[in-house]
């Protein structure tokens, strides 16, 4: 699913180089639930950006769903983000002037999905996150947890290969955080690949596998919850 080989990312290579990622080799299988941990400055955000095709690596190769994306141009990357990746942000990033339903429909607009199908798929995803009674509310009329549920529905709506969640519980209280993490876990049970960036151990504890970064390097890779379903046990899972 995700395969990274010798990924390096260097910011300002000429004036004041910052080595954000150093020789990262990584492999994430379909249907896995992976947490990426590390203190700030460890390179986990850079990794997230590269993984989310928002940024390109300085060197190395990155395959997403069997396609080499590290050398794509910005339009191609936009299409990859649209089709293969679902983003969940710490601050939800819902558009304030749109209703929940329209926010969820947004990725499909860029995919050219027709109106009826947009509606059907959006309602389906909103149903999966349990927000069908709030579809006509604007983000300002929703609680943080509800906003994040809508944001997760938006991430799911184009049937992406992976969900990339960047500190999804960072703005939530612990009870709501628990609800959101339970939601992620149930999505994982439904065979959604999830990559979660966090610096909180109790949040990372929901994942099956935890990768720890320090100074741009992958320093630890452990299976935290072996009792969770093995990705390889899932039909169609495994290496690509």
């Amino acid at each position: 699913m995700i395969k990274m080989e010798q990924i390096n990312k260097i910011y300002r290579p000429h004036s004041n180089p910052v080595h954000a990622l150093r020789d990262v080799d990584l492999h994430i299988e379909i249907g896995d639930f992976v947490a990426i941990m590390g203190p700030s400055g460890s390179g986990k955000s850079t990794l997230m950006n590269v993984m989310g095709c928002l940024d390109t690596p300085s060197s190395g190769a990155y395959w997403l769903g069997g396609v080499e994306v590290s050398s794509m141009n910005s339009d191609q990357l936009a299409t990859v983000r649209n089709q293969k990746i679902g983003f969940v942000f710490q601050n939800y990033n819902l558009l304030p002037r749109m209703t929940a339903l329209r926010n969820v429909e947004l990725p499909m607009l860029y995919a050219g999905v027709n109106k009826d199908e947009r509606n059907t798929r959006a309602l389906d995803c909103i149903g999966r996150v349990g927000m069908l009674d709030r579809i006509h509310h604007r983000p300002s009329e929703l609680s943080g947890g509800q906003c994040q549920r809508i944001a997760i529905a938006r991430a799911l709506v184009n049937n992406p290969d992976i969900i990339l969640a960047d500190e999804p519980t960072g703005n939530l209280d612990s009870a709501t955080s628990l609800e959101i993490m339970n939601l992620f876990q149930s999505l994982y049970q439904e065979n959604t690949t999830i990559v979660l960036v966090t610096h909180e151990e109790d949040i990372a504890a929901f994942a099956r596998r935890v990768l720890t970064f320090r100074d741009g390097k992958l320093v630890n890779d452990e299976i935290l919850n072996p009792h969770l379903i093995e990705p390889s046990a899932v039909e169609g899972g495994g290496d690509i």
């Binding site: 989310g52 928002l54 910005s74 339009d75 936009a78 299409t79 983000r81 649209n82 089709q83 983003f87 990033n93 558009l95 947004l106 990725p107 860029y110 995919a111 938006r154 184009n158």
Partner: peptide, 16 residues
């Protein structure tokens, strides 16, 4: 700006 960033993240190309 953030809205533009978000739209790009969700798959908007530059010309969109």
């Amino acid at each position: 700006t953030r809205e533009i960033g978000l739209r790009m993240a969700l798959g908007a190309r530059r010309r969109d």
